[in-house]
Design a protein around this nucleic acid. Sequence first.
DNA 1: AGTCCCAATGGTACTGCTATCACCGGTGCA
DNA 2: TGCACCGGTGATAGCAGTACCATTGGGACT
Lengths: 348, 348
Amino acid sequence: MEKRRGRSSQGVTIREVAARAGVSPMTVSRVINNENNVTPATSAAVMAAIQELKYTPNPAARRLAGSETFRIGLLYSNPSVAFLSEFLLGALDESSKTGHQLVVEKCGATAATEKAALQKLLQSGVDGVVLPPPLCEAKSILAEIAKSGVAAVAVAAGQPGPDVATVRIDNYKAAHRMTQHLLSLGHRTIGFIKGHPNQTVSDQRLHGFLDALSEAGLDPKAAPVEQGYFNYRSGLAAADKLLALKDRPTAIFAANDDMAAAVLATAHRLGLNVPVDLSIAGFDDTLIAGTIWPALTTVRQPIAAMGRAAVSMLLDEVKRRRGGGTGAPAQQLLRHTLVERESTAAPA
Amino acid sequence: MEKRRGRSSQGVTIREVAARAGVSPMTVSRVINNENNVTPATSAAVMAAIQELKYTPNPAARRLAGSETFRIGLLYSNPSVAFLSEFLLGALDESSKTGHQLVVEKCGATAATEKAALQKLLQSGVDGVVLPPPLCEAKSILAEIAKSGVAAVAVAAGQPGPDVATVRIDNYKAAHRMTQHLLSLGHRTIGFIKGHPNQTVSDQRLHGFLDALSEAGLDPKAAPVEQGYFNYRSGLAAADKLLALKDRPTAIFAANDDMAAAVLATAHRLGLNVPVDLSIAGFDDTLIAGTIWPALTTVRQPIAAMGRAAVSMLLDEVKRRRGGGTGAPAQQLLRHTLVERESTAAPA
DNA sequence: AGTCCCAATGGTACTGCTATCACCGGTGCA
DNA sequence: TGCACCGGTGATAGCAGTACCATTGGGACT
C-alpha cells in the first residue's frame, strides 16, 4: 500500500530489486558498486533480480546520497574546434556520469582575459580547473593557479608543471613510431613540418622524428625540416618549400593533420600522386584526416578519453588535497595509436 | 547543532540561503524556479542572499526531488563524425542540465542491425528516442518506432514523419539563399553537386538551388548538375566532370562541405585560383570548412542547438503522450546562417 | 567450550531539493 | 458582518540512493 503522492517516477527502484531478491536495499547497493563483502550467492540473486526488473540506478540519487559533489571548471580559449568538441564530449560524459558539475568558460587570447576568465571561475567556487591546450601552457594561467592553490589538470601539455596533474600522450614516442613506419616502408628522404613554436609538443614531435632517423643510420641534420604553425595555411607554405627541393622528399611528416592536409593539397596541385609519388603522415587524427582523399595516415590521440581522464583525475586531485596529500599530482599517459590509411606507401 | 556525520558536501545549501534571507527553504526554491507567487521584496532578499553566499542549486538533488526522470535514447549509425560530435555535445548538455538520463547506442548500417539496436534501447526502457541522420529517414526504424509507440524526434530529416517530432533547418530556403548569394556576385553558370539520393535533404537543397536560378531568369534545365554522395571522393569525381565542361561554371555549389572541399582540391589540381577563377560554396559548416584554405563559404546549421532542441522536444513529446495529448508532434525549424568566407567572390 | 573477531547483512538517518497541503491574513462579495 | 476565497508562505514528507553503525552468525583461537 504505497503512498505515492502523484510524483511518480516509474523507474524501478533499488527497493523493488531488494524485495525481489529477498535482501535489503543496502545489499543491492553493495552489489551494484562491486563491493567485496558480498557472498557470491547473494550477489548472483541480486544480479538476477536486476536483470529481471531491468533496473538501472538513478544517477541523481546516487550522487546526492554519495559523497560530495564537486564543481569543476573547464576553461578554454581557442584550440582546434575538432579537438575541443571531442574533448568536451569526454569531459561532459564523465562528469555527468559521476554526477559532478562542469562549468565551461571560454576566454579570449590575451593574458588579461585569460586571467579574468579564470578569476570568474574561481569566484564561482569551483573546486578545480581543467585546462585543455593551449591554456595548459599559458604562464599567466599557471601562475594564477599556483597562487590560488586550486587543483588543476593540464591536458595534452608537453611539459607537466609541478603543481598540476596532466593527461597526455607520449608525443615523442608517437612521432618516433610514425617515423619508423615511414622508414620501414623504405623512405630515406623524409621531410618534416614543425608545429607552433610556443607549444612544447612541437619540440617533442620533432625530436621523436629526428631520433628515429638517427637510429636508422640517417643524418638528422640532413633532413628537410620546415617551420609550421599547426594551421592549414602554414602547411601550404611549408609544403611548397619542401616539394621544391632538388632532393625532393618521398615522404612528408607534418606535426598535425591540418598541415598534412595542406601537404596533400599542394602535392595534388603539383600533379604528384599520393601515396605513390609522395607519402604523407599527419598527427592527431582529427576529422579532416578521414575526410579527405586519400585519407591520412596519422597518430590518433584518444581525445574523448583524455576528457574523461582529465575530469576524473581532477576529482582525485581535489580529494588528494583535501586529504592533505603530499607529493606531486598524478600524471597520466594515455595510449596513442598509429592509424594507417591510404596516404602512405612504399616509395615508387 | 547540526549532526553532519562526516559526509559533508561543503557547498552552500538552500537551507543556508533560507536562513540568511530569513525565509523558509521552500520560498527560496520558489525564487530560483521563477515561480510567480512570491512578493518582489521577498524575492529580492532571497536573491541577495544567493549572491552573497554564491549559492548554486545542486542539480542532482533537484532532479531527484523534482518530477519524473526520463530516460531517453539516442541511436546513431554512421553520420559524419563532425555532425555527431557537435550534436552530442548539445544533447548531452541539455540532458545533463535538465537531469535526464541519456543512453547513447550505436548501430551498424544494415536494416537488421538498426532494428536490433533500437530493440535494445526499447528493452532498456527508454521513454523516447532521438534519431540523428541518416537514421531519421530509415524506414525500418520509423516503422518500428510507430509500432512500439514510443516518442521520437527526427533530427535534420528532410521530411517530417507523421508520428515523430522533428528539428531541422529549412534546407530549401538555405540553398535558395546561397544560390542568390552566388548570383548576386555575378555568377551566371553555377554548377551543383547533389547529395546522397536516399536523403530527402538532397532534393530540398537541389530545388532551392534550381528555383533561385529560375527566379533570376536563368534556365534551371541548363544548369550543370552532378550526382554526389555527400563524401569527399564523390565530390572529386563530380568536380572533375563539372570542371571539364566546355562552358565551365564560374561557381560550384556542393550540397555539403566535404564535397565542396573536394571541389577545392580539384580546382587547385587544375591550376584554378579560388575564388578568382572559381567560387565554391558548401553546406553544413563542418570543421573542414574553416580548416582548408581558402576557407569555405557555407551554410551553417546550428547543430549543437539542434541537439539541445531534440532532447527538450523529446521530453515535451513524452509528456504530451503521457497526458493523452492529441494532435501531431511538434515541429521545430531552427535558423540557419550564411557563413561568408574566402571561397566565393565575383567571377574574374 | 568459551571468547574473540570478522565477514555478511540489515536498519536508520541523511543527502539537497521540491510536491503537496496546511495555514494565515487580507479582500471581495453577499 | 460574515464567509468564501486567494495570494503568499511554511511544515512535512518524500525522491532513490549511500554512509555509518548495529547485528548476527560462523570459524579460529585460546
